[in-house]
Structures are given as C-alpha cells and as structure tokens.
Design a protein around this nucleic acid. Sequence first.
DNA 1: TCCTGGCACTCACCGGTCGTGAGTGCCAGC
DNA 2: GCTGGCACTCACGACCGGTGAGTGCCAGGA
Lengths: 338, 338
Amino acid sequence: MLSERRLEVLRAIVQDYVGTEEPVGSKALTERHHLGVSPATVRNDMAALEEEGFIAQPHTSAGRIPTDKGYRLFVDRLAGVKPLSSPERRAIQNFLDDAVDLDDVVARTVRLLAQLTRQVAVVQYPSLTRSTVRHVELLSLAPARLMLVVITDTGRVEQRHVDCPAPFGETSLADLRARLNSRVAGRRFSDVPLLVQDLPESFEQEDRGTVSSVLATLLETLVEETEERLMIGGTANLTRFGHDFPLVIRPVLEALEEQVVLLKLLGEAKDSGMTVRIGHENAHEGLNSTSVVSVGYGSGGEAVAKLGVVGPTRMDYPGTMGAVRAVARYVGQILAES
Amino acid sequence: MLSERRLEVLRAIVQDYVGTEEPVGSKALTERHHLGVSPATVRNDMAALEEEGFIAQPHTSAGRIPTDKGYRLFVDRLAGVKPLSSPERRAIQNFLDDAVDLDDVVARTVRLLAQLTRQVAVVQYPSLTRSTVRHVELLSLAPARLMLVVITDTGRVEQRHVDCPAPFGETSLADLRARLNSRVAGRRFSDVPLLVQDLPESFEQEDRGTVSSVLATLLETLVEETEERLMIGGTANLTRFGHDFPLVIRPVLEALEEQVVLLKLLGEAKDSGMTVRIGHENAHEGLNSTSVVSVGYGSGGEAVAKLGVVGPTRMDYPGTMGAVRAVARYVGQILAES
DNA sequence: TCCTGGCACTCACCGGTCGTGAGTGCCAGC
DNA sequence: GCTGGCACTCACGACCGGTGAGTGCCAGGA
C-alpha cells in the first residue's frame, strides 16, 4: 500500500506537470512543495510510484510524468472538484440567459465550455427519446401532400413530408390533428408507438391509408432522430496540446468529426454524476492521448443529454470538472425555464 | 510583358510546387516538363518572374515558390477548372440523394466537399431572406400563448412562442392563420413586412393586440435569422498543411470557429460565379496563409447561399474549383427537388 | 536578339563530436 | 526510515566540415 506521503508526492507531480508540461524531478518537487523531506527521500518514493505504474520517465535521467493510471488515482482520491468563482458563475448565467432558442442555447454552451476550460467542448442536443412531445402539427401542402411537424418540450422542432395514398380533406385533417394531439401531447417520445397504434381503425375506410402514412412518418422521425446531434467547439485549443504536433492532434480532429464516435463516447459515460475517462480508458484509438470529462444535464431532475470536454490527459482535472459541472447545471436551469 | 514561355514556366512551377511541397529548381523543371529549353534559359525566366513578384526564393540558393501574386496569375490565366470524373459525379449524386432533411443535406455536403478536396469545407445554410415562405402555422399552446412556425421552401423550419395580451379564440386563430398564409405563402421573406402591415386593422378591436404580437414575432424571426448559420468539416485536413505547424493552423482554427468571420468571408465573394481569394487577399489576418474557393448555390437559377473550401495557398486550384462547382450544382438540384 | 553550356559561389542540410547539466540510483551513516 | 554524497546517464544545444542542389553571370553560337 502507498503511504500518505507517497500519495502526496504523486499529487505534487501531477500538479507540477500539469502546470509546466515538463517532466518533474525530485529537487524541483521539494523546492516547490514543502513536503518536509529531502530530494533523496522523494527519489525513493518516486521509484516506488514508478514500480506501481503511476508515473514513468520519458528517458533515463529525466524527470517523471504521470501515467494514465497515475491520473486515475489522482482524480479518484487526490483531487476535489474546484468550484467556480462567483463572478464566473454570474458570467455563465448572464451569457446563457441571453439565448433565444435551442440552437442558441447549445451554441452558447459550447463556447462557454471551451472558453472556461480552454479545451474542446462537446454538447449533445437534448434527446428526443427521453423528452416529451409538446405538440404535433399537420399541414396540407397539396391535395395529397402533408407536412408533419413535431415540437418537443426542449424546443426542438422536427418536420417531415408525408405523401398520401389518397386526397385527404380539411375536416379529416383537423380531426386527425386533434386526436393525435390528445393522445401524445405531454407524453414521452418512447411511449408514442403504443399510444397511436389503434388510431387508423377509428377513421373512415378511405382515410386509413393516409392516417397510417402519417403515423409511419411520425415513428420514423422518432427512430431517425434517436441518432442524436451534437455541437463541438474550441478546436483551436488543440494547438496548445503539446510540442509533437500533427501526430497527436490529427486523430483527435478526425475523431471529433465523426459524430458517431463522439455520441458513443458520451453514451458510454454514466447517466448521472460526472464521468472522467483518461487516455487509454477511451475506447476510440484516436483519443488515447486525451481525457474526456462528461456529465448529463437536463431540464428536470432527469438527464436528457450530455456535455463535456476533450483535452490532453495532462489537464487541470479539478478546474475542468468544476467548470463542466457548473455549466451543466445552468444549462439545465435554462432549459427548464423555456 | 511576360512572354508565353515565361507564363509556361510559372505554370510548371505552380504545378510542381503544389505536388511536391518543395521549392522547385531550374533543372528539375526542365526534366519534368518538356519546355524545349535548357535550365539556364529557365533560370533567366525565373529571374524575370521573381523581378515581377510572381515567385520568390525562401533562401538564396534554394528553388522558387510561387507568391500570392503568382497563384493569382495562375488561377486567372493559366489554370482551367478540372471537371470531375463521371464516377465521382455519380458518387456525389448518390450520396446527396440519400439525405432526409435540410440538416442532412448540409451535413452531407460538408463531408463530400471535405473528402473530395481534402480540405476544410464550409457550407452556408440556405438563407431565409432570399428564400420564400412555404407556410406559416399558428398553434394554441395555452389560452394566451401561441406558437408560430415558419416553413421555408428550402425545408427550414423556425419556431417561436408568442405571448398574447388577451385570450385568442380558435375561430380567430383559424382566421388569422388563413389570412396570413394567403398573403405570404410563396412570397420572399424580404417582402413579408410590406405584405402584412395592414393586417391588424381588419380584425376586431379585442384581437388586434394579439395579431400585432404575432406579426412582431414573425418579423423578428426574419431579422434574427438573417444572421445565417453554417456548417464546417474536414478540419483534420489542416494537419496536412505544412511542416511548421501550430503557428499556421492556430489562427485558421480560430477563424473557423468565428462564424461571423466566415460569413463575412463568404459574403464578400461574388454572388454568381466562383470566387477565389488567395492568401493576403483574405481580409481576415488568420487566413493570410490560406486560399478560399467559394461559389453560390441555390434551388432555382438564383443563389440562396454559398459554399466553399479553405485550404493552403498551395492547393490544387483546378481540381478544387472543379469539385466545388460540381458539388454546388448537385446541392442546388437536390434542394429544387425536395 | 535570344539561347546555351560552363563555371564559381552560396548556403541549407546532414551527420558526427563534445561539453553541460538536470536528473537518477545506490550506499553508508545518522 | 531519512539524509547527504557520489558516480553515472543521457537529452540537448553548439560547433563544424562535407555535400549537393541551386543560383547568377558570362562568353560564345544560332
């Protein structure tokens, strides 16, 4: 088992390395942190920490840098979550309060996260499946062509065309619109299929085809939009990544462009509480030299989507975690209000 | 005036430099291109071209590289637009045909452009001001709360809440909906303000307040959405930019994050035909080492928005221009069909 | 007048050598 | 179990000379 002081040494190494980006040696450590022991003692501790795999040396006769395992221990046992200062909190709130619609909320959130953490920010749009239907609207575009609009409680709007097998009168349209809304308004998207399945039967023979088409399109919208969208920002922060450039950031940029990869990444994170994935803990190879800090957010108590940041494993974990958590809270509030 | 052969030499220099990314010397030039003259002659021509500012040497006793002015001459007088191969054309069409909605069209276009040109792609969403209104829908959410939905001919949907000064009956709602649509459906967004200004007067006194609120919101949507959105992709291609990394791509990434900058960039381009801005011709400082190739696209004969790519000044202009033009055409077709 | 071959010159690049210093491991003593 | 001392390692930067691609210039020929 690692003694208390060795953990302290590890913490000091992580902090110094995060600050300077350079391998940290025993002498510098004792000078910057008052550990109360000599460099020689620290050297012994370092040897032990290296033995256990928490730190490593890039070359013989260089200082040590933390390994993924070292960061993991640091995050789990040594680091708290650094709360934001109150001016920061106020700035967040003001900035988000000005948002005019859902797109704007998401866009502002991305900017905010990227600026606060000086890293790449990723924000998932509130998911359709977990949110509820506010309203379904049907419009007639042409005699045998309808438009279906679905509005969710998070302010998202989806729209689809429906080609009808037969002309559909205004009366029937109003009827269908009313019945559809009375069944699904306020209900969760995931419950919709069950709620509408017997709807065609209650219509005249001649209209059933059209009603079925509308329902099919509605359900299809549901399925398609389960592939969620997301927005990223702050990629310019990647340039502060390290010295050995292109090789590191190339795969990261590629991964960030693959929405599928990112969605999977966020999907793997815990639904509640904050998740930190460090280096090789990330399944995707391109992200092996990055850490991902993510957390769910939502309008009520329940998380409807996730947001987070992607940065070098050598990041300021307490600060990043604090910023991510705070932003998620405020976004949740904003969504609840609107 | 530059002789025919000197122009030929410039063309050869641009082509070789684009291919190899290395300064090109007189000997290599005569070997790769059958110019019919000796290296010594080419050297004289090069000296003249340098004198005129079309090429430069990074150091004494190195080959020459084209300057921005050299690329400009190349693009204007020496390079054609390389048409895509027919398999490429088919691939584009197939890929775009599968798009399900406007977001998807834009997203696919970005991917396509980025892949074809191996550069950063930028696609502007079809603009509301230049497109027409397909339908306006009004829904009652609560006794004194309405939702306004605007649907454009390019498939874009915008939605806003309206708080009414007084309760608004279903009959009045249907009435307003009908009158609103009869006036604006099929009209350009920019014409809407004039078309609706006298609408409140034709309603009962008690409803006028609400009608005015609805119209105000409608016009506000118009103004807000004149700030257009855009989508970018292919940023990973920036890693192929050059050897001297962070210093070059940092400002480019920053510029790309500023939608305002990009919109201005696209806005400065000609409305019809293709625009190529080379290096320092770009107003934004961060893009001084890049070239931007852009073109308008639209569903009819008229351009409703622009798309383009951002890449190093040392890019394959004929190929890039060909790809950009072809993609713009197909996107226009797709939009016209939907 | 324009092109060509020849020639001397420049200078970035590459590989090797060497001194410096931060950092280490080990050990004997407190 | 901590400490000071000591020998060792090795990345890094500076220096240096050889190599070769490339240049500018010039005199001679079509």
